[in-house]
Structure formats: structure tokens, C-alpha cells
Design a binder for these strands. Structure first.
Length: 546
RNA sequence: GGGUGUGUAGCUCAGCCGGUAGAGCAGCGGCCUUUUAAGCCGUUGGUCGAAGGUUCGAUUCCUUCCACACUCACCA
């Protein structure tokens, strides 16, 4: 079953607690330093002259000038490699054993404090920051003269002795300074004292558009993506260790299916045919189950041409996995284990998310959808008709569309009144058949329901799973039904995929299938409330060149 | 799509009831060999998001547009 992006219902508009989000918004567009102005029809020299008036252009010119001056000193401002022996954190953490020994570190200059013939600076590398002490007497006059030309943002390497300053900060006392790459475009200058951040680079638009600056200047951003990588690694280990085969199926599909969503459409020139970017990989993974791979999974980048908000990005990552000979009960156990495993890998058995405390070590609740309706709305859905739902809506002054069928009523009411209340991890089981065209009918029960579960945490959906439908006659009928809806104008109904039906007709074993919204899981484990903050390059409108 | 808000120097922000703009940081020029939001002296830099309108005069008021954020809806 493919994952369908959920909707958060919880409170709060305040995005993040981190200090970098404190300041308000500023504009940058007309003079954005990271966009090279395009001035058609103006010769370069004239162009440069024109732009001399802007500070930014001045800075760019000054720094280009510095590059020239450094070259005149016989120094290559862009050398090819540098031998690094230690990362910043290793020097700081290993001071006891490293004191007075020689190390070489490399990174970006983030602070510079010049005091005449000696200076301090901070170098930032992938592991953190380390202070440098550079004196003319230690590194020589030429190197020191070059140092005076360096700017915040330059990449440099330093070889020197580990020491502590009199304020106790571990510092590399430079014996040798090597410029590794000259910066010409100024960085946002962020300062910090006693944990208070000054002049934070907090404009969300700029941060998303210029993620490289965000990463340089706001180190906590990096942590989120390190955690993201960890979760992906742990997920892959989880499936690999259980004998699942990682597969890759088409992103460009002649028909889109496996979920209800509008697709992106593209065109293949030599085939002269339209193709769709996948909205799910479900139908292909099932073909592989038919083909005899008993356990498969895929990290599937899906594309849905729909609204964007802090829970939806047009492209997002789902993990789908399918296992032959198991049902949705088995998959519920597996999902519970999955969350325990990730929590374990992240060292966070208890999560604090959106003002809720989520203990992932406890068993997850399992509640039939029907029970939740009884509990929250006092509705006995087994006995309800469309008319009964309509009456209930009228009575409770809830807007509804009289054309809704049984399943749609259940879906909408669930969404509105029940989902937001599912804070503790809860498997909601047994969904209406009408909204689950790929799931098997509930065994020994009401034929209007299917064996499907979704996992909710903090009022949001994380997982969607079925006992997969493998009766080809039933499957054909249901997809035909979807296709009729589509033809009638429901542009999110699933298209009819004859080859998929033929695959099912070939014989698919009983199969359990699951889709997990990976971005959601990452949000949960990193405490982020916007999907943009777990995507390195979230979708943004392109900037109009003025 | 609706609502609210924001957009002023490279960055972070002031700018009252209309009189064409300021600060800190960064930059530039000096001084300074254990500083750390280094400090001190001097200094460059702005089509006030865009276009219209009102006005003698608009960063300021009005309209439209653009971008973003938040939010509601739709969509899952």
C-alpha cells in the first residue's frame, strides 16, 4: 500500500524554538547577492562600472582585487588539495593528548579578530569549529600579509601546535597558513555570545533558497540532515536484515496509480508519448511480488501535483515494502518493530513532538475505525447509511456534499473529528472499501470494509498498509470503478492499468504491503514541524529576474 | 483559492502625524602579538520589493502586482 500524505491537525503557528528563527523577514530580491544581475546589451566593463555603486559590487570587486594581490605574492588562491590530520572536534576533544603536538585542520574562516601582528580566527569544518592563533612571527611575514587579505568565508588550512589560550579555549597555534579557496561573496555574519545568537540568518525564504548558506551559518540545520541520513540507513538495515530486496522501479510511468493524487505530466520525445512522474510505486512492486520476489522494498521519491504546505512538498519520499504470504496483522507488528528500531538507532525512545510526549517503547493502540466512530462521534457505522451520515452532519452543522458515498462520509468525518485526537501511536484498522481500491475485503466481517490500517501519531498519518487485494476479478472491478470516477471528472481517481490487472491475473500470493511517509518519520524524530525543514532543497517558486 | 503579516545597506534591524533615509555588524583605511558579539579612530555603501495613483512633495497614504512566512480551505 502506498503512503498517502497526511494532514496535521495540531495547534500552533510558531514554527521552531531554535534561536535562529527569532528575527523577522527581510527582502533581498532586487539586490540578492547570490544572484548575478543580468543586464542585457550592456558591455561587461560598463556593466561593472554601473554596479560599482552598490556595496555588494564593491565587495565583490575588492575581493577579486585581493585574489589578484594574493597571486602577485606568488600564492595560488585555489590550490588542489590539502593534507588534513584532524577535524575540529577531534582537536578540541583530544586536547589532553594533543597538547603541543602538530595538527593540520582545514575549513571555512567564520570569525577573524585581528590585533596587529597577531590574530585569532575560528575555522569551521564538518565537525564544528576550532580557534586559530596566528602571529606574524610564527607564520612569517608573507603568510601574515596574505592572512590580512583573508575574509570571513574563505577556506583555509592551518598546520600548527595545539594549545590553550589563557581563557582556556583549545586553539591551534599556526605555524603555517594555506589559503585553500578565496571567497568573494560575503556570508551572512552571525554572532553569538553566551548562547545568544545575534544577527541570526533567519529569513526562511533565503535559508531555503540558499541552503548552502543556511548550512554554513546555522549549524543546527546540519544536524537535521545528519539525522535524516541516519534514519535512512537504519531503515535500509531494517529491511535488508529481514531478507527484503531493495529494488528500483520506474519514476516515469505511462500510467500513474497506487494512490489518489494528481500527477505531473511530462513527454518523451522519441517515443512521442506522455509520461507521468510516479505518485506511488505500489503497482510495480506488486508486479515484482507476482514475479517471485517475496520481499521487496523501495525508497520511492513520489511526485504529486497538489497543494504545498508545511506537510506537503510536491516531491516526497515514501518507503514501500511488500511481503508475500503475510497479512496486515503481520505488518502491524512489523511496523511497531520498525518504529522501535528507529527510535533505538536514534537513541530517542521517548519523543517530544508538538507538545506531546510519545513513548515509542509502549505497544501501539489498535482500534477499528468503527470503534473510533462510536467512541468519538457516537455513530454506529456498521448500521449507518449515507442518509444517516447526512442527518448526523445536519444535526451537528457539519458541511457535507450530498453526493458523497458511504466511504467518503467515513473518510471526511474521520479526518475532521477523529484523526486530530490520535496523539498516541495508534493503528486505525479496517477502512471502508469504497476508499481502498487495492485492499482485500475484511475476512469474516462486513464486506464494506477492507483489511487496511493506518498509523497515526500526534494527529498525523505515518503509515498506510493493506492485506493486498489479490483476487483479479475483484481487483478488475474496483479499478474499473475508479476509472469511471476518473472519467466522470474525479481527477484523483486511479487510472485503469490493464497490465497491472494482468499481473494480478497471473497470480499474486497473499501479500502484506505498507507505505511509510519517510519525511514525516524524519520530522517526528528531528522535532521539525515543517517538511521544508527536513528537505535540503524544498520546492520554491523560481525567482523572477527583475 | 481565502485571510493575516512581512519586504528599507551584503547581514540584523530602526525610521512617529507625508518633507527623497539611520544604527550595529560586515567592508574599506589606520592603531593594536592571547582575542572571542575583541577594542579604538576614520570611512564607503541605499531606485526604501515593483508599477500606478493621491499630493507642491511618497520609504511613509491608496490601488494593483510580485515574493515569502503564518493560517484556513482544497488536496490526502
Amino acid at each position: 500500500m502506498s503512503f498517502e500524505a497526511p494532514t496535521y491537525r495540531s495547534e500552533e503557528g510558531s514554527p521552531n524554538r531554535s534561536p535562529i528563527f527569532l528575527r523577522s523577514v527581510i527582502s533581498f530580491r532586487p539586490k540578492n547577492p547570490y544572484i548575478i544581475p543580468i543586464m542585457k546589451g550592456i558591455p561587461m566593463d560598463e556593466h561593472a562600472q554601473q554596479e560599482k555603486h552598490s556595496t555588494l559590487e564593491q565587495i565583490l570587486e575588492q575581493r577579486k582585487e585581493k585574489i589578484a594581490r594574493i597571486r602577485e605574492m606568488g600564492i595560488d588562491p585555489f590550490p588542489y588539495a590539502y593534507e588534513v590530520t584532524h577535524r575540529s572536534a577531534e582537536v578540541a576533544d583530544g586536547f589532553e593528548s594533543l597538547e603541543n603536538t602538530q595538527v593540520s585542520v582545514a575549513g571555512r574562516l567564520m570569525t577573524i579578530r585581528k590585533m596587529g601582528k597577531a590574530s585569532f580566527a575560528h575555522l569551521q569544518d564538518g565537525a564544528g569549529r576550532i580557534q586559530l592563533y596566528l602571529s606574524r612571527d610564527d607564520i612569517g611575514e608573507t603568510a601574515y600579509d596574505m592572512f590580512k587579505l583573508l575574509d570571513i568565508g574563505d577556506i583555509a588550512g592551518v598546520r600548527g601546535l595545539v594549545m590553550k589560550t589563557r581563557t582556556g579555549e583549545v586553539t591551534v597555534k599556526a605555524q603555517e597558513l594555506t589559503l585553500l579557496a578565496k571567497n568573494i561573496r560575503p556570508l551572512p555574519i552571525v554572532k553569538e555570545k553566551d548562547g545568544v545568537v545575534y544577527d541570526a540568518f533567519a529569513d526562511k525564504e533565503l535559508r531555503y533558497r540558499k541552503r548552502y548558506l543556511d548550512l554554513i551559518v546555522n549549524p543546527e540545520v546540519k544536524d537535521v540532515f545528519v539525522k535524516r541520513a541516519k534514519i535512512i540507513r537504519a531503515t535500509r538495515d531494517f529491511f535488508d536484515s529481514r531478507g527484503y530486496l531493495e529494488v528500483e522501479t520506474p519514476v516515469l510511468q505511462p500510467l500513474y496509480g497506487g494512490a489518489n493524487a494528481r500527477p505531473f505530466i511530462t513527454h518523451h520525445n522519441s517515443l512521442d508519448m506522455d509520461l507521468y512522474l510516479r505518485i506511488a510505486d505500489e503497482l510495480y512492486l506488486k508486479r515484482l511480488i507476482v514475479g517471485g520476489f517475496d520481499k521487496v522494498y523501495e525508497f520511492s521519491r513520489n511526485f504529486r501535483n497538489e497543494g504545498m504546505d508545511r506537510n506537503h512538498n510536491p516531491e516526497f519520499t515514501a518507503i514501500e515494502f511488500y511481503e508475500a504470504y503475510v497479512d496486515y496483522y503481520y505488518m502491524m507488528d512489523l511496523i511497531e518493530t520498525y518504529f522501535h528500531t528507529i527510535a533505538d538507532a536514534m537513541g530517542t525512545p521517548v519523543l517530544n513532538y508538538k507538545d506531546a510526549s510519545i513513548d515509542l517503547t509502549l505497544p501501539f493502540d489498535r482500534k477499528p475505525m468503527a470503534d473510533l466512530f462510536t467512541e468519538h462521534l457516537g455513530l454506529d457505522i456498521a448500521a449507518c447509511s449515507e442518509g444517516d451520515f447526512a442527518a448526523w452532519c445536519r444535526e451537528h452543522q457539519v458541511e457535507f456534499d450530498p453526493k458523497w458515498n458511504y466511504g467518503q462520509f467515513l473518510d471526511k468525518l474521520f479526518d475532521e473529528f477523529i484523526e486530530p485526537k490520535l496523539i498516541r501511536p495508534t493503528f486505525v484498522i479496517d477502512y471502508p472499501k469504497a476508499i481502498s481500491p487495492l485492499a482485500k475485503v475484511k475476512r469474516n466481517g462486513d464486506a464494506r470494509f477492507v483489511e487496511r490500517f493506518e498509523l497515526f501519531i500526534c494527529g498525523a498519518e505515518y503509515v498506510n498498509a493493506f492485506s493486498e487485494l489479490n483476487d483479479p476479478l475483484d481487483q478488475r472491478e474496483r479499478l474499473e470503478g475508479q476509472d469511471r470516477l476518473r472519467v466522470q471528472g474525479d481527477d484523483e481517481a486511479q487510472a485503469f492499468d490493464e497490465d497491472f490487472i494482468q499481473a494480478i491475473e497471473t497470480g499474486m500470493p497473499p501479500t502484506g504491503g505498507v507505505g511509510i511517509g519517510l519525511d514525516r518519520v524524519i520530522m517526528l524524530f528531528t522535532g521539525q514541524t515543517s517538511i521544508k525543514d527536513v528537505l535540503l532543497f524544498p520546492a520554491m517558486r523560481t525567482e523572477k529576474s527583475s
